[in-house]
Design a protein around this nucleic acid. Structure first.
Length: 799
RNA sequence: GCGGGUGUGGUGGAACGGCAGACACGAUGGUCUUAGGAGCCAUUUCUUCGGAGUGUGGGUUCAAAUCCCACCACCCGCACCA
């Protein structure tokens, strides 16, 4: 058959759309499969090959599930709020709404050309007011439950985008969007109290099936540590300075203490500090330091001794000096530490620079050279002396602290509360009203959605305030509580808001009474399999797990965790092996491949190019190889014979087994390789039965659906292959009647012998020793040991 | 620095502790052609043809790419988290 892919592909894309085969049915009797891919941000640049790889994995799984008889929900939507669209709108003077609509249309068209089996009847758009109504609704529920709070804080601020960023969006001190250096700025910030869920976000990981590296990253991100809080009295003012430590066992080794520059006690007792001028100067220097300086100068500790403050070690009674230094941060623990230079590298560096005494309390290492951070026998530690186990010493000290009322066991997390506002136009308005009399008042639920007003200028204000602040009609309003004059909040939600619950909306996208009906949620949740990029494993995933757990606590969703299983695809690198980027000029446009080789070739190539979870470079010549493969498949009908012998039968049973299981394990490359091998075998043999042909097409159809539909139809089938039953295999038929196994002598392969898979040992060795080619290996030697693993190998040890 | 991962032909990559290099790409030779960046056939880890080979060096085992120990290189997270 001539393989006219463009004709075949447009024909079947049209048929799929018209017949609605990929629309999920709310048939609660059928077993369900909910496959989720990360919905794209519809950028003006259009689709990237990375999108295709990200979607292809679950695309083939979803197609397989339909063939296995599942009711499949494989939805698509658009995460369309966000800065790039807004920046483009500012640049071109177009409204973000128009930009978004145009981009979504363009994106949809491109996705359809690849033949993804998405349910296009459930498309969602986070910027649609019928969608963001519910984003605001959930926010108000959180407000109601005390999970939303406002605070003035030093925030990560991007001077270029003029926007406050969360810690997650400013990793490494760079803006996630424009890569500019972040500065610290004092601002009013809305927070979501995600830390309240820290422990459950951590323990919930035990119940889900995420790839190990994904779990690990989330565990790291949450960053739980256990230790103790200890109170040190300050002699001069009598107040207790509370610190957090993971090493209470080293309490006897404390030789100084350090406070963060922003620690409130410094201002509180300014009059008692003799060198306050010096301290103030140091604090100023710290606030000016860029993130770069702070991270690059880690080894070079700076600080100032607080003259006039002396702390008292609560267990030894020793008097110890207190310093301020920016190696201690206000944002973690209590903003103050006990320093044990003998057993902590950072404290050691600091003590070394400032000439502070170093007191060893754990035996081992060489304290004159470096801090000893391993475990060992406790010394110079009063009642802990002689203990060799770190955990025992920690336990004993913690119990002692608690019994004396000078401390207690404690837990800390690296994860911070979620800064939840942006001073931008293209986001969900925060539905809160500020009333002089009543304070912060939520917009009543029945007034949702709180719509974005029409604005002509999307440029943020110079002071970093939202463009909404300039719209008088929007800002001025009545307090929903007292009816008095009030002002609306003008900040909008961050991009991560809409994506925190979108998988819930897919279940019931047109519901106007609720974000989704309980019956439908009950049936479809949890998401059975979620695939996406590693870059979203810490931010988007943790945020959405948090929202989900919140909704679960309100009884609004049926499961504690949203995603039962999570995998991640590897990057597609440029042909040069580098990460694709416009500046390197190594970006591959998927549309060109579709035009030139067809969507089926593109799909097969992307899944064949390498291990799905690893990065792999693009290779156009390999794309051509996949084209050749499909062309040969298109010629397969010529080999179909009615009276074909069943010589290849076991090959087919093996292939069904391998392709089926490889797909489940994300090993699409070897699944396709198996189909290639089978094709080679068929061509070598020269004929194939009608039934075998049918099996072959069904196995290949998730990967190359257009071509397989066409061949399927040509072979006389009336129904689409998309709903044909997935082939089954017979385990007993995957085993050959004879196998050729290797014969090793002293571990080296010396020949082979043909035996039955379960042949008796005696019989096998009779054949081995009768073999003329092998005989030379035994002459003049004594057989010491005979090893036979049925179906695998023979190894003979001789001397 | 900490955490995780990877290391196999010219290339992408296969390989439940059991014949390393499946499947492809590329290359070489042949065939068919006015032509070949098409198709088909053959060869393709290295080799002094004895063997040697999965980053390096040890170990466990009848048997190691695979398990254990040490080291080296690269990639990805986090980064003064007390």
């Amino acid at each position: 058959m001539k393989y006219d892919f463009s004709e075949i592909e447009s024909k079947w894309q049209k048929k799929w759309q018209e017949s609605k085969v990929f629309e999920a049915k709310d048939d609660f009797e059928k077993p369900k499969f909910y496959g989720l891919i990360e919905f794209p941000y519809p950028s003006g640049a259009g689709m990237h090959v990375g999108h295709i790889k990200a979607y292809s994995g679950l695309e083939v799984i979803s197609r397989k599930r339909r063939m296995q008889g599942y009711n499949v929900l494989f939805p698509i939507g658009f995460d369309a709020f966000g800065l790039p669209t807004e920046n483009y709108a500012i640049k071109t003077g177009t409204h973000p709404r128009q930009v978004t609509d145009k981009n979504i249309e363009h994106f949809s068209e491109q996705l359809k050309k690849v033949g993804f089996s998405f349910d296009w009847s459930r498309v969602i758009d986070t910027t649609d007011e019928n969608y963001y109504k519910w984003t605001q609704w959930i926010f108000l529920k959180m407000f109601e439950k005390g999970l939303v709070f406002r605070d003035t804080a030093l925030v990560n601020y991007c001077p270029s985008c003029k926007v406050v960023l969360s810690n997650e969006d400013s990793q490494g001190g760079k803006c996630d969007i424009c890569k500019s250096d972040i500065v610290q700025k004092s601002k009013d910030v809305w927070y979501l109290r995600i830390t309240k869920y820290a422990d459950r976000l951590l323990s919930g990981l035990d119940e889900v099936d995420y790839l190990p590296n994904i779990k690990m990253q989330q565990v790291n991100w949450i960053g739980k540590s256990t230790g103790a809080f200890v109170d040190f009295e300050i002699k001069e003012c009598g107040e207790k300075l509370r610190i957090y430590t993971t090493r209470p066992d080293t309490l006897f080794g404390v030789t100084f203490m350090v406070m963060a520059p922003e620690h409130p006690m410094i201002d509180k007792y300014a009059d008692k500090i003799k060198n306050f001028d010096l301290i103030s100067k140091y604090r100023e220097e710290c606030s000016k330091k860029t993130e770069f300086e702070r991270t690059q100068l880690v080894k070079d500790k700076t600080g100032v001794k607080i003259e006039g403050f002396t702390a008292i070690n609560p267990v030894s009674g020793e008097e110890i000096p207190i310093y301020i230094s920016d190696y201690v941060m206000m944002g973690y623990g209590t903003g103050a530490i006990m320093a044990v230079p003998a057993h902590d590298e950072r404290d050691y560096d600091f003590a070394h620079k400032f000439g502070i005494n170093i007191k060893q309390v754990i035996k081992g290492g060489d304290i004159s050279k470096e801090a000893y951070t391993e475990s060992g026998e406790m010394i110079n530690s009063g009642f802990l002396d002689g203990i060799k186990e770190k955990s025992v010493a920690i336990k004993k000290m913690t119990e002692y602290l608690a019994s004396k009322g000078i401390g207690e066991a404690g837990v800390q997390y690296k994860m911070k509360d979620w800064a939840f506002n942006r001073q931008r136009y293209w986001g969900e308005p925060i539905p809160i009203v500020h009333c002089g009399k009543c304070g912060m008042v939520p917009v009543p639920y029945e007034e949702l959605p709180l719509r974005l007003p029409e604005v002509s200028n999307f440029q943020p204000g110079e002071g970093g305030e939202s463009p909404l602040a300039k719209i008088e009609e929007f800002v001025t309003c009545k307090c929903p509580k007292c009816g008095g004059p009030a002002k609306r909040e003008t900040d909008t939600m961050p991009q991560w808001a809409g994506s925190s619950w979108y998988y819930l909306r897919y279940v019931d996208p047109k519901n106007d009474k609720m974000f989704a009906s309980p019956e439908k949620l009950n049936y479809w949740l949890p998401v059975d399999w979620y695939n996406g990029g590693m870059e979203h494993v810490t931010r988007h995933m943790i945020y959405s797990r948090f929202w989900h757990k919140f909704l679960y606590d309100l009884g609004l969703v049926p499961t504690d965790e949203p995603y039962a299983k999570r995998t991640a695809q590897g990057l597609i690198l440029g042909p040069d092996g580098e990460k694709m980027s416009k500046s390197k000029g190594n970006v591959v446009d998927p549309n060109e491949t579709v035009e030139k080789y067809g969507a089926d070739v593109l799909r097969v190539y992307i899944l064949f190019m390498g291990d799905y979870a690893s990065a792999a470079p693009w290779s156009e010549s390999s794309v051509r190889g996949c084209k050749r493969f499909l062309e040969r498949v298109a010629d397969l009908p010529g080999l179909v014979k009615d009276d074909c012998k069943d010589k290849l039968d076991s090959h087919f049973h093996k292939a069904v087994k391998k392709v089926s299981s490889d797909m489940e394990e994300l090993k699409f490359n070897t699944a396709i390789a198996q189909l290639m091998t089978l094709l080679n075998e068929i061509e070598d043999y020269g004929e194939i039965s009608k039934e075998q042909y049918s099996v072959y097409l069904r196995l290949l159809s998730p990967f190359a659906p257009h071509l397989c539909e066409e061949l399927w139809e040509k072979s006389g089938e009336k129904e689409m292959i998309a709903l044909a039953p997935w082939p089954k295999y017979d385990e007993s038929k995957t085993v050959d009647s004879t196998v050729e196994i290797a014969v090793q002598v002293n571990g080296k392969v010396r020949g082979t012998v043909c035996v039955a898979p379960d042949e008796e040992k005696d019989s096998v060795f009779k054949k081995v020793f009768a073999d003329e080619k092998l005989a030379g290996n035994f002459t003049g030697k004594t057989v010491v040991k005979e090893i036979y693993i049925p179906g695998k190998i023979v190894n003979i040890v001789v001397k």
